[in-house]
C-alpha cells in the first residue's frame, strides 16, 4: 500500500540516521576510552547502612587520589552480592556481618571469594534502651530487671504484654527465642526494615517514653540518642547466635557475641596483584572512626564523597599506613 510504503521509507531513514549517529559516538567513545593507570577499575559494593557507606567512600577517595584507580560503586543486596563476587562483577565488600553460610559456600567450598580479615570494626548486637529509662529503672542494667516490668513497654500492637521492637528481617537475630528462654512477658513486634524500626524508636525516645529494641553497634545514632545496652545472660559454649539455626530455645539463652566485621574479596580480584588489593587488605579503622564518618553522611546529610575526603585529609597518617608508606 502506498501510504504505508512511504511512511516506512521515512522511518527506515530515521532509524538509519540514528544508528549511524550512535555508531559514530560509540566508535569515538571506544577510541578515547582511558586505558587507565596500573590499578584499573575497582568495584566496591556499598551496603544499605551508613557504616558501609563510610567504609566505601573513604576507601574510594584513597583509591582514586592515591592509587589512580577508577572506582565503581554498586549497591547490591547482602546475599546476592556473593554471587557478584564469585562472578567478579564486584571486587570487594568492606563490611560483612558474619554470613557464615556464605563463607562456607563461597569461600571454603567454591573458593570463589576470599575472606580477607577484619576491617577493624567490631560488630555487636544487643537489646537497647534509652539512657533516661536506665536512670529511671537502674535494674534494667541486666535482663533480670525487666522481669515483672514488661508492661511499662506496652504499645497498641502488643496488647497486655510489653512490646519488644524487633530488628530488620535481614539481620541476624534470635529475640523471639531469647524472650521465650528468659521467660519474659514481651510480645515480639517487627516493623520491618531498619528505617521503619528507627522511625519507631526515635519517636518514642523523643517523647521520653519507654522502649526496648534490637539494636547494634557501630551505629551513628547511638551517640545521638544515648542508647545503652541491657545485659543478657553470659555466652556459654554452644550457645546459638541466629534463630535460623533452629533447635531448642534453651540454646539461645545468651547474649549476642561481639565479632569482627569481615572484608570479603572476589577470588579473581584477590589474585589480580592490583595495588588496590594491597591497600584494601590493610584498610582497617575503629568503631568510633566509622561512626564519625557515618554521622557526617547520615546524620548531617553530607555528600558521601565529601565526607570521605574530609576524613582522609584529617587522618593522613593512618591512610599512609594503609598505603604501606
Amino acid at each position: 500500500m502506498k501510504v504505508g510504503f512511504r511512511k516506512s521509507h521515512v522511518r527506515i531513514g530515521v532509524v538509519a540516521v540514528a544508528l549511524a549517529a550512535v555508531g559514530v559516538l560509540v566508535a569515538t567513545n571506544a577510541a578515547t576510552a582511558r586505558n587507565g593507570a596500573s590499578c584499573g577499575t575497582v568495584t566496591l559494593n556499598e551496603q544499605a547502612w551508613a557504616g558501609s557507606t563510610a567504609n566505601t567512600y573513604v576507601t574510594k577517595y584513597v583509591l582514586e587520589h592515591s592509587l589512580g584507580c577508577k572506582v565503581k560503586i554498586t549497591q547490591i543486596a547482602e546475599i546476592p552480592v556473593y554471587e557478584a563476587l564469585a562472578h567478579a562483577k564486584v571486587d570487594a565488600v568492606l563490611e560483612d556481618w558474619q554470613h557464615v553460610d556464605q563463607y562456607k559456600q563461597y569461600a571454603t567450598k567454591q573458593k570463589s571469594v576470599v575472606i580477607e580479615g577484619s576491617n577493624g570494626v567490631n560488630g555487636h548486637i544487643f537489646w537497647g534502651i534509652p539512657d533516661y529509662l536506665m536512670k529511671q529503672y537502674p535494674q534494667f542494667k541486666t535482663w533480670k530487671g525487666l522481669k515483672g516490668k514488661e508492661s511499662i513497654f506496652k504499645s497498641p500492637e502488643s496488647g497486655s504484654q510489653g512490646m519488644f521492637l524487633g530488628g530488620d528481617p535481614s539481620y541476624v537475630q534470635k529475640d523471639k527465642e531469647l524472650i521465650q528462654a528468659l521467660g519474659l512477658n514481651f510480645k515480639f513486634v517487627s516493623v520491618g526494615a531498619e528505617a521503619a524500626q528507627t522511625a519507631r524508636w526515635t519517636q518514642l525516645v523523643k517523647q521520653k517514653k519507654p522502649v526496648i529494641f534490637y539494636w547494634y553497634t557501630p551505629q551513628y545514632l547511638n551517640a545521638q540518642y544515648h542508647i545503652v545496652e541491657v545485659q543478657l545472660p553470659k555466652i556459654f559454649k554452644g550457645c546459638k547466635e541466629d534463630a535460623k539455626a533452629g533447635g531448642a530455645v534453651a540454646q539461645y539463652r545468651c547474649a549476642y557475641s561481639t565479632y569482627p566485621l569481615e572484608k570479603v574479596f572476589g577470588a579473581k580480584f584477590a589474585k589480580s596483584g592490583s595495588p588496590a588489593v594491597a591497600f584494601l587488605k590493610k584498610f582497617s579503622w575503629t568503631n568510633d572512626q566509622q561512626n564519625t564518618v557515618a554521622t557526617w553522611i547520615a546524620g548531617l546529610h553530607m555528600k558521601p564523597d565529601a565526607a570521605g575526603e574530609k576524613w582522609v585529609k584529617a587522618n593522613q597518617a593512618q591512610v599512609n599506613k594503609w598505603l604501606g608508606k
Binding site: A48, W49, A50, T53, Q75, A193, A195, A298
Partner: peptide
C-alpha cells in the same frame, strides 16, 4: 533504584 534503597537508611529525603 539505588538512591531509593540506600536513601532509606542514610537519607530518606
Amino acid at each position: 533504584g539505588d538512591p531509593v534503597t540506600n536513601g532509606l537508611n542514610t537519607n530518606p529525603a
